Amino acid sequence: DLPPEQWSHTTVRNALKDLLKDMNQSSLAKECPLSQSMISSIVNSTYYANVSAAKCQEFGRWYKHFKKTK
């Protein structure tokens, strides 16, 4: 379990794929700090720029909290 400071584009993509087993992209976009188009691009590997470090950390913090509450 990585601390949010160490999250990267790959970590975010893997976490998104895991979350999308249980929910669809639009529900996920309402919950998490990423937009639906960004989620779609990341999981389909069409998001060519890497997600910014700040966004990765924000998502990492959100993901840890989300997993605790589920």
Rank of each mutant, 00 (worst) to 15 (best):
D1H: 01
D1Y: 04
D1N: 10
D1E: 10
P3Y: 05
P3Q: 03
P4T: 11
P4M: 09
Q6R: 13
Q6T: 14
W7C: 01
W7G: 03
W7N: 02
W7E: 01
S8F: 06
H9E: 15
H9G: 11
H9L: 15
H9N: 11
H9K: 12
T10R: 11
T10N: 06
T10M: 15
T11L: 07
V12R: 00
R13W: 03
R13Q: 07
N14R: 14
N14C: 11
A15C: 15
A15R: 04
D18A: 07
D18N: 14
D18C: 07
L19D: 02
L20Y: 02
K21D: 15
K21M: 14
K21G: 07
K21E: 03
K21L: 10
D22Q: 10
D22E: 11
D22L: 07
M23D: 07
M23A: 04
M23K: 03
N24G: 12
N24Q: 04
Q25A: 11
Q25V: 15
S26T: 14
S26P: 11
S27C: 03
S27A: 15
L28G: 03
A29T: 07
A29R: 04
A29P: 14
K30L: 11
K30D: 13
K30V: 09
K30I: 10
E31S: 06
C32E: 00
C32M: 02
C32V: 03
C32I: 03
P33S: 02
P33E: 02
P33V: 01
P33Q: 07
P33F: 01
L34A: 01
L34K: 00
L34E: 01
L34I: 05
Q36H: 15
Q36Y: 08
S37I: 11
S37N: 12
S37A: 14
M38C: 08
M38F: 01
M38T: 09
M38V: 09
M38A: 03
I39H: 01
I39C: 02
I39M: 05
S40P: 01
S40T: 13
S40Y: 10
S40H: 15
S41L: 08
S41T: 08
S41H: 15
S41Q: 09
S41M: 14
I42N: 01
V43Q: 03
V43D: 05
N44T: 09
N44H: 06
N44K: 14
S45G: 12
S45E: 11
S45N: 15
T46K: 13
Y47K: 09
Y47D: 03
Y48V: 08
Y48H: 15
Y48F: 06
A49G: 11
A49V: 11
N50L: 02
N50K: 14
N50M: 04
V51D: 07
S52D: 05
A53M: 13
A54I: 07
A54C: 05
A54H: 06
A54R: 13
K55F: 01
K55T: 14
K55Y: 05
C56F: 13
C56V: 10
C56L: 12
C56M: 10
C56K: 02
Q57S: 08
Q57M: 13
Q57L: 08
Q57H: 08
E58C: 03
F59S: 00
F59C: 00
F59I: 00
F59L: 00
G60L: 05
G60P: 00
R61V: 14
R61I: 10
R61Y: 09
R61C: 13
R61E: 13
R61H: 04
W62E: 00
W62T: 01
Y63G: 01
Y63T: 00
Y63R: 00
H65W: 10
H65S: 15
H65F: 07
H65D: 14
F66E: 04
F66M: 09
F66A: 08
K67G: 05
K67H: 15
K67A: 04
K67Q: 10
K67M: 08
K68S: 12
K68F: 12
T69F: 06
T69K: 15
T69L: 11
T69I: 15
